[in-house]
Structures are given as C-alpha cells and as structure tokens.
Computed example of a mutant assay.
Amino acid sequence: MPTTMDVQRLTTLLPPAEGWGEVVHLSRVGSTNTAAATRGVLWSPVVTEHQTAGRGRLGRPWQDTPGASLAMSVLVPPVDPPGWLPLATGLAVRSALVSEGVDAHLKWPNDVLLPGDEDRKVCGILCQSQPDGRVVVGIGINVGHDRGDLPVGTATSLRLVGAHVDRTTVAATVLRHLRRQHTALTEGGDRAEEVRAAYAAACATLGRRVVLHRPDGTREEVETTGLDREGRLRVTGAHGSDTVAAGDVQHIRLPGASSS
C-alpha cells in the first residue's frame, strides 16, 4: 500500500513563494471539498489519507480505501467561462499520469480512463462553486487499490495497470498542472486556446458515437462533433443538433474494441 503523504516534501514542491497556501494534511475527513471550502484559502491544498464522505459528479458517492487513494481539494478563483475548469482539471490529472508513464485519456467532461485496464475510470473530480464565486476543485485518484477494493466494475487503479507511483509526487504534479491550466484560462486568448486544444487532443469522446445519459434520466445515442466555447459537448442525434452541459456519456463499443 502507498506510504503516508509527505507533507514537508509537498510543501517544498508547492512553495509559498509561488503563491501556494499552506498544505493541510488530515488523517481522516468526511470531505476534502468541505474542508477546503471551510478554510477559504486560495491555492491551499487539503489532502487526506481517508475520505469518508466524498462525492462525485451528480452527487454520486466516491468510496475510499484508507491509504490507497490520493484525495485532495483546493480552492481556486473562478475562470470565464466556468465550464472549462472541470475539463481543465481532468486534463491536469491526465497530464500528471502521463508524466508518470501511465497511458491515460479523457472521457467528457472529466473522467480519466486507463486503456491498460479496458478504459476503466481511475479518477473522480468534483468542482463546486462557492457563494463568492470561487470554486473548490476536488480530485480523487485510485492509486493502490486491488480489484476487490473498488466499488464498481468500471473503476480501476494505478496499481492495476502496473503503475507504482508516489502519491506526494503525483499530488504536486497534478496541482501544478492545474494551476498552469487555470492561469492560461484566466489570461484567455491564445493561452486559453492552447488548453482547449490540449483537452480536445486528449479526449476520446470527441468524434465518436456515444450513449448520452442526461441528468433527467433520458438516454439517446448521438454522435459527438466537438466542444463549444463554454466547454459543452456538441452532439447530433435523431432529434437534430444540440449542446450538452451536464450528463454522462458511454462510449459505444466498436468491433474488437473495449467500451468505456
């Protein structure tokens, strides 16, 4: 199982001189998102060894095995348009995993999938807007789980694809990528366009047929045609063209290929 997070080294990798707040390490917490929101300090990461009440998108519970996950949250300023922050967070996680030699790609909006384990999901992300406009970004990565530790058959871990990583290093790399993406989106122009292009290149959803699961419970088979400027998914189906701001997509299995 992974060792305890090295808070001193994480602080060195995220120094106050570069605008990072205090690294808060909790042995156990209900939700790192709640803890980060309560603290109210920008770019002050909250990390934990055991999250007992984590949530994913659409309110789904995100179960945790003590010491096996990388669970952390950080409060960040808003970006415009806001829909790009969750996508950029997924891109940050994917970039960090690739730097560790892990093959990974994205499923819209921000699921991180591992082709090495039949495109199962390795990471959960939840961005929660605060009353003052700031946003808590929550990230949970399955690191050291065995198959039996995972709550659903569509989940995986880095260990299951043979990746033995240091959680402290991965935490710092994810957060640094996230901050670079955030800065680019805030600056706008060509910098923001670079983030959008990088996301499109890493997203396996674009340009394929999927089953779209909408928040109201309806499902529709559609073809994805790209993203709009808000980060919404452009689709074409039996009822014409549409843009989708929220929901899940299921990649349709092609002959000889795995599904996700």
Rank of each mutant, 00 (worst) to 15 (best):
H105K: 01
L97I: 04
V98T: 15
V98L: 14
G67P: 09
S73G: 10
H105P: 01
P82E: 11
L70T: 03
V98Q: 15
W84V: 14
P77L: 05
A88V: 11
D80F: 07
G67E: 10
G101C: 05
L91W: 02
T89E: 13
P77M: 04
W84T: 14
E100Y: 00
V74G: 00
W84L: 15
V79E: 04
L70C: 01
L85V: 05
A68W: 05
D80H: 07
R94A: 15
V76N: 04
G101V: 04
A68Q: 15
A71H: 03
P78V: 01
R94W: 00
M72H: 07
P82Y: 05
L75Q: 11
T89H: 10
A88I: 11
S95G: 14
G67N: 10
S69M: 08
P66C: 13
V74R: 00
S95V: 06
G101T: 06
S69F: 02
P77E: 05
A96N: 01
L97Y: 00
L97D: 01
A92M: 08
V79H: 06
S73Q: 08
H105I: 02
P66M: 12
L70G: 02
A88F: 11
L91H: 03
L97G: 06
P66Q: 13
M72F: 14
H105R: 07
P78H: 00
D80W: 03
L106G: 06
G90A: 11
P78A: 00
S73C: 07
A71I: 13
G83I: 11
G101L: 02
S69N: 15
H105V: 04
E100P: 02
P78C: 01
